[in-house]
């Protein structure tokens, strides 16, 4: 006799529905907060280590090379170069996109940092090392998020 033999009325089977409440609040922190607030003003902010001169974008509180606290804020130009990229064909829910998007890690000019963002270029036109420039949302639409930068495009 197997267990499966006995199952004659599946409607008798019970199940328990649950919902785990795992809400959280993530603050952007002492270094992250001014970075996002300045994005709202259309500026990209970094921090510069007084000891080694390394410029962190996005801003960091501590220099990972020197282990010292960084207090010097610097505004960085809003252009950079494509360090690496990928062509994306599906959205975050794995639905096929109408048009493929290009996402890249952009190294910001004159700094040692950068971030991942969308490129407004055709997949066949992108190449590593190409210069790009940040395009911000219109002032009233900005909300202090990384998405205040709409995308990067060729200057």
């Amino acid at each position: 006799m197997t267990f499966v033999d006995r199952i004659e009325r599946p409607e008798d089977f019970r199940h328990w529905l649950g919902d785990m409440e795992a809400e959280y609040v993530y603050t952007s922190g002492i270094a992250g907060d001014p970075f996002l607030k300045e994005l709202k003003k259309g500026k990209i902010l970094g921090t510069k280590c007084d000891n080694c001169g390394k410029v962190y974008v996005p801003s960091r509180m501590y220099c990972e090379e020197c282990f010292v606290e960084i207090t010097r804020w610097v505004e960085v130009p809003n252009d950079g170069i494509v360090d690496t990229y990928t062509v994306v064909h599906v959205d975050r829910d794995e639905n096929l996109l109408e048009k493929p998007e290009v996402w890249a890690f952009i190294r910001m000019e004159g700094t040692d940092g950068g971030f991942v963002h969308k490129l407004n270029v055709l997949p066949e036109d992108v190449n590593i090392g190409m210069p790009v420039k940040a395009v911000f949302k219109s002032k009233k639409d900005r909300e202090g998020r990384i998405t205040d930068i709409l995308y990067f495009e060729k200057p």
């Binding site: 019970r14 529905l17 993530y26 952007s28």
Partner: peptide
């Protein structure tokens, strides 16, 4: 600046 998030962590436990 902060993010608030409530992940949808629903489950069904079969008895």
């Amino acid at each position: 600046t902060h993010e608030e998030w409530a992940p949808a962590v629903k489950y069904a436990w079969s008895c």
